[in-house]
Design a protein around this nucleic acid. Structure first.
Length: 861
RNA sequence: GGGCGCGUAGCUCAGCGGUAGAGCUCUCGCCUUACAAGCGAGCGGUCGCAGGUUCGAACCCUGUCGCGCCCA
């Protein structure tokens, strides 16, 4: 099927029309979801696609929803937007590759499994193949091995995914449900590990001991993309250091880090401190000698203009430490508490007063000590300031030096950064301005992408380390898994050349303990979905993909990381288009989310208004634009769906049938209607090509309502008759109905399929998208509009007189611009019938069209 | 503080250089045999504010205020 084929794909059987007595939109979902599944309406024909040229394929990198989460109306809207595109492309004759994935990997699933079964993962435990989770979660969580824990994750996510699929089918997504992937499946794990080994071999991934943002509750490292600033109360403490010629006063919000102080810093231009540069001062309480250094990031007008550098209080400390090559005096451990032993060179007294304390209580103690020693000047001055948090965490992040895996992303390399910005410019963004989000993010990166996480339910790094004679890991010589053995779990699988008895013993080996960040695996969704590792032929046909649909909040994470991986592995962008959907927001314009408690459950809305109505409302939200949730709008969609049902029934009852053809259309008003429809088809097509489904629907819908209210009213009495004039009306009605059903099919799949099934063969969703060239081009649409305007004049007179539209008119005199007179004359008989006019006169007049109406005497009854 | 977007009828939004548009709401009507979960008609806006460019600005430019998102 060529995308521009001029004729509908569906063979039209002669005049077999079967319209239900009382059509209804209720229950259409059950009927058609089942039928589409049974007939495999949306199947991707792999063999045909492999034969077809690339332009005949349309592939979509569908966002895998978090299966352990819950869906709200916002999700329904954005996935529906993608479905509009998928259905349109399918009707254009393309082989639409539209898989669905489930993101069942990561922390949300871990938490859900912990709560659901009442268990917790203890990686030190051995696997118990007979383990059964408690029937009900008990008060204390049962410790289980990592493998048992992962099995429970698998089990629960499978159940969650089945529920999701049911909902998506009811939403009408034209996904090929035989093509579903999971981000934690064996195949996904193998792909992720293979990609990682590739990155490692090419030097794009590396491990490094480095200061790392650390969530002390989850005890895991956190990447830049997962940070958020939150305003928190704090206080500036004025602390006095002993300088060569008198005290030097700094201000700090974290006095407890005094033992971690490695230098003081001021701006190079700051005349107040220039004499001190190169000198040393001594810290209060600990009496450690530290240098005074100059750096451009020190802020002259912040506090006293001079600050202490600690290892590490914030990210600026890390920059200073790195650029000024300062020593490390770490005091905070993985649990967020002060380490038992002071850093080298820091006296045990008074450090032992802090050991084991949290930052909070350490600060209290330090403040007391500083007060006693007289080194705290003034009372602490309360402020609010932004503090870094893990977006899913609730305690401020600490910076801890740990060994982590990174993928280079341009954060430390200008050339790479430029290359990735350039990749972004190869993508067509919908809407265009979303490109800025990408560029701003890439240009603002200040470190490589940290991909290791100290969690359990994720893809492990396929890496082991030899242990030396002391049992310490030799990190410099990692043992990598064989590609053929992937996926591996190094915590239960044994590296080549070793056996299990050597695990953890000196001279033996140990597993890399970490798993990959979820973005490190979900950034491979195009590879997983397209069969990079499992079906190279298919992959060659569908990759790079055509579309990545997603929301704007994860441009910095999912979109960017996917570009990075594709850039490395294939030297290309992963898709030609990125369509960014907006959010559904509540009446206060707040993003809908489950955690805020303002989310609307979709199933309820779908049941009350019908899927087509909800989809219609989703189509009203343009790409990228946030859209308020407003139930009153759903009613409008429902009304449209019902109107299509009713007008379909009526038109088919008037004698329109699938055997009607354009050639039978001879009357000027009928030709005018179809020519106008051709223009609508062109506009809707142009809009769909630009991913502007909102505009496409709008032009179709505007046409449709005037088709119902004006055109059908004008021609119905003629269509009731027989002969050539009646056949012309019947044929025009049939063609117009059939074309409009196809125009509406992507947005309203259920009601259009229903009406289509009354008189056409096959599925409307496998029919060709309409083309204007199949419609008469020589009609004059003004015949319809001028005649409709005249009819409106008659209606207004009846409305003003408060009589029925069925009231008889004795005389109607139309004064129309001269050019319109012949147009209205051409439809005279239709106007006379529709207006119930005894004597009609059409005259040229000044200005706009007006109608003088004399109503017939109402017979007294 | 920076970037991006948005401020048009009571609400949701089109329009983006040539005399203000749609739907919903509201008002007034109409049982009209496709549809009363319908149909017809009507009311309603100095296009956030202030300058500027232009014969002409909702639309272009500058500034300003307000809202939202992202990033510091």
């Amino acid at each position: 099927m060529a995308p521009d084929s001029a004729t509908p794909a569906t063979p039209a059987p002669a005049a077999s029309v079967d319209v239900p007595e009382k059509p209804t939109i209720d229950g259409l979902e059950e009927k058609w979801v089942e039928r589409w599944a049974a007939e495999d309406t949306y199947a991707f024909d792999r063999d045909a696609a492999l034969e077809a040229p690339r332009e005949q394929i349309y592939s979509i990198d569908t966002p895998p929803p978090t299966a352990s989460g819950s869906l709200h109306v916002g999700h329904v809207f954005s996935y529906t937007h993608t479905d509009f595109v998928a259905r349109y492309q399918r009707m254009r004759g393309r082989h639409v590759y539209y898989p669905m994935g489930w993101d069942d990997n990561g922390l949300p699933t871990e938490r859900r499994v912990q709560n659901y079964y009442g268990v917790r993962c203890d990686p030190a435990l051995p696997y118990d193949p007979t383990f059964e989770p408690p029937a009900k979660p008990g008060k204390d969580q049962v410790p289980v091995s990592r493998r048992n824990f992962v099995e429970l994750c698998m089990q629960l996510t499978e159940a969650d995914e089945a529920e999701f699929e049911k909902l998506w089918r009811r939403v009408g997504l034209s996904v090929d449900w035989s093509n579903v992937y999971r981000t934690i499946s064996e195949r996904s794990r193998a792909t992720a590990q293979k990609m990682f080994l590739g990155n490692l071999a090419r030097g794009e991934a590396y491990a490094q001991e480095a200061p790392t943002l650390w969530d002390v509750s989850f005890r895991t490292a956190v990447a830049q993309a997962e940070l958020e600033d939150r305003e928190r109360p704090g206080a500036y403490h004025r602390v006095s250091f002993a300088g060569p010629s008198g005290p030097v006063v700094i201000e700090t919000t974290r006095p407890e880090l005094l033992p971690a102080c490695v230098a003081l810093v001021a701006h190079p231009d700051d005349e107040r401190y220039q004499p001190l540069f190169g000198q040393t001062v001594r810290t209060p309480l600990f009496d450690v000698e530290v240098p005074v250094v100059a750096h451009r990031l020190a802020e002259k007008d912040k506090g006293s203009g001079i600050a202490m550098i600690c290892t590490f209080g914030d990210l600026t400390d890390v920059i200073w430490w790195r650029e000024l090559q300062l020593p490390t005096r770490a005091v905070i451990g993985w649990d967020g508490r002060f380490l038992a032993e002071p850093p080298a060179g820091v006296p045990a007294q008074p450090y032992d007063e802090l050991a084991g304390k949290t930052s909070f209580s350490a600060q209290q103690r330090i403040v007391e000590l500083l007060r006693e020693s007289g080194d705290l000047l003034d009372d602490p001055r309360p402020i609010t300031h932004p503090v870094k948090f893990y977006e899913k965490g609730d305690r401020p992040l600490e910076i801890v030096t740990t060994r982590q895996w990174y993928i280079r992303n341009g954060g430390r390399d200008g050339d790479l950064r430029d290359a990735l910005v350039a990749r972004g410019r190869e993508i067509q963004w919908v809407p265009e301005h979303m490109r800025h989000r990408y560029e701003n993010w890439v240009e603002g990166l200040n470190g490589d992408w940290l991909i290791s996480r100290q969690r359990f339910f994720g893809v492990p790094f396929p890496v082991w380390y030899r242990l030396d004679a002391e049992g310490e890991p030799i990190h410099d010589e990692p043992i990598l898994a064989d590609e053929a053995s992937l996926p591996v779990d190094p915590s239960s699988d044994v590296p080549p050349g070793f056996d299990e008895s050597q695990r953890g013993v000196p001279g033996g080996f140990m597993a890399d303990p970490d798993v990959m960040d979820t973005w490190a695996t979900s950034s491979l969704s195009p590879q997983v979905a397209s069969g990079w590792d499992t079906d190279p032929e298919l992959f060659a046909a569908v990759f790079p993909m055509d579309l990545r649909p997603q929301a704007h909040d994860i441009i910095r994470t999912w979109l960017f990381s996917t570009v990075v991986r594709s850039h490395y592995e294939f030297g290309t962008v992963p898709w030609s288009h990125a369509a960014i959907s907006g959010f559904v927001v509540d009446p206060d314009r707040k993003k809908m989310s489950k955690s805020k408690g303002n989310a609307t459950t979709p199933i309820d809305v779908l049941e009350r208004y019908g899927t087509d109505a909800v989809r219609w409302r989703a189509a009203g939200a343009r790409p990228g634009a946030d859209s308020p949730f407003d139930e009153t709008q759903m009613k409008v969609g429902r009304r449209l769906a019902m109107k299509i049902l009713n007008v379909g029934k009526f038109v088919l009852g008037l004698g329109a049938s699938a055997s009607s053809t354009v050639e039978q259309v001879t009357e000027p008003i009928d030709l005018g209607l179809l020519t106008a429809l051709g223009r609508v088809v062109d506009e809707a097509t142009a809009a769909m090509e630009a991913y502007n489904y909102t505009r496409a629907l709008e032009v179709s819908e505007t046409f449709f309502w005037s088709f119902c209210d004006d055109y059908v009213e004008l021609v119905k009495s003629r269509a009731y008759g027989t002969g050539a004039a009646a056949a012309s009306a019947q044929a025009a009605l049939a063609v117009a109905l059939e074309v409009q059903l196809r125009l509406f099919a992507p947005v309203l799949p259920f009601v259009t399929e229903e009406v289509w099934s009354w008189w056409q063969a096959g599925s409307v969703h496998r029919a060709a998208w309409p083309v204007a060239s199949a419609l008469p081009a020589d009609g004059d649409p003004a015949v319809v509009t001028a005649t409709a305007a005249a009819l409106a004049g008659v209606r207004k007179a009846k409305s003003d007189a408060k009589v029925s539209m069925r009231a008889d008119v004795a005389t109607a005199t139309v004064h129309a611009p001269a050019a319109q007179v012949p147009l209205i004359e051409a439809a005279r008989a239709d106007l006379v019938d529709a207006g119930r006019i005894a004597t009609l006169s059409v005259q040229p007049g000044e200005g706009e069209l007006t109608v003088e109406v004399v109503l017939a005497e109402t017979p007294a009854e």
